[in-house]
């Protein structure tokens, strides 16, 4: 269980984290999204015990991670540019971590080495960006941490490796109740991977929700209506967004599918269809309602 209470982190006069508060339950796959400079990496580094908070607190199982090796032995952080010992091979890194992480599993390490197509005897510095991330992941998963912190882990990974990564990490979550926090500026990457999402913007958390809950409560409707009705005629539906293109009406509506269809059908549409929303669309809708300029946040 991770609890964040009024957490603040400043870099000179800039508030990288500005009094954020939320919690992450055990065994969840938590996605942190936000534009560059939103505070995602700062949050992960604070959670990993690299940065000391300037205010508030961050607790992992009730303890602060900064200068606490007990807590840190349960955490493994892969930064956006993973660092390896100079001239080290994957085996050297394994030899390094084996002395440090209490749950390091040699068996798991060997399994992972077979799963990922990289050589454990080659120098990591000579590997591509994607291969270096695979190397970091092998080490992280072999360390069998309770909390895995991943910063922009999908960068540089090809689609096959992304899927493999998602599958392995999800498996670990299911088997060992591991908590994963993954930061990305790409919502689509997290859509089929995370069960919780937190949106960061300018050092604050705009919102934090369960993904299913978020998706189930909102629907996209495409309908052809003649004549085009006024938005008031859709009452009592909770319209989040409405766009007209001639007689084609696009709606984003909160509520159950049945309730929405009943109302639209009462307006005698020529055609009506309820479509699934992508996570990005859900975010755009929610953010616009909240009064944020979403293009500015996500780009």
């Amino acid at each position: 269980m991770i609890e964040v209470r009024n957490l603040t982190k400043k870099f000179n006069s800039v508030n990288a984290l500005d009094g954020i508060s939320f919690s992450i339950g055990s065994g969840s796959l938590f996605g942190l999204v936000g534009s560059n400079g939103a505070g995602k990496s700062t949050f992960l580094r604070t959670l990993a015990g690299i940065y000391e908070p300037d205010g508030g607190e961050i607790l992992v199982d009730g303890k602060t991670p900064f200068e606490n090796s007990d807590v840190k032995s349960k955490l493994f952080f892969i930064s956006d540019y993973p660092y390896f010992l100079p001239q080290a091979t994957l085996n050297d890194m394994a030899d390094f971590y084996i002395r440090i992480y209490p749950n390091w599993s040699k068996k798991r390490y060997e399994e992972l080495c077979r799963l990922f197509p990289i050589s454990a005897k080659d120098k990591i510095s000579n590997m591509s960006k994607g291969m270096q991330r695979q190397a970091a992941l092998i080490c992280a998963l072999a360390a069998q941490p309770d909390y895995l912190l991943l910063d922009e882990i999908f960068d540089g990974l090809d689609p096959v490796m992304r899927q493999l990564l998602k599958r392995i990490v999800s498996g670990e979550v299911a088997q060992r109740d591991m908590t994963v926090i993954v930061a990305s500026h790409n919502l689509r990457e997290l859509e089929d991977f995370c069960d919780h999402i937190g949106l960061f913007h300018k050092g604050g958390v705009v919102f934090e929700r369960d993904l299913d809950e978020l998706k189930l409560g909102i629907n996209k409707v495409q309908a052809v209506l003649k004549p085009t009705p006024d938005i008031r005629e859709f009452a009592p539906l909770d319209i989040v967004k409405m766009e007209n293109r001639g007689s084609l009406v696009n709606l984003v509506v909160r509520g159950s599918k049945e309730e929405i269809l009943n109302k639209i059908n009462s307006l005698h549409p020529i055609f009506v269809e309820i479509l699934p929303l992508t996570l990005e669309e859900v975010f755009i809708s929610e953010m616009e309602v909240a009064g944020y300029d979403i293009d500015n946040i996500l780009n």
């Binding site: 015990g49 090796s69 840190k72 955490l75 930064s79 993973p82 660092y83 440090i100």
Partner: peptide, 16 residues
Amino acid sequence: HRKRSVDLFHSLPIRR
């Protein structure tokens, strides 16, 4: 003196 190495060494379960 390098952000990347600080990320590694200060996240390890070894106090300063």
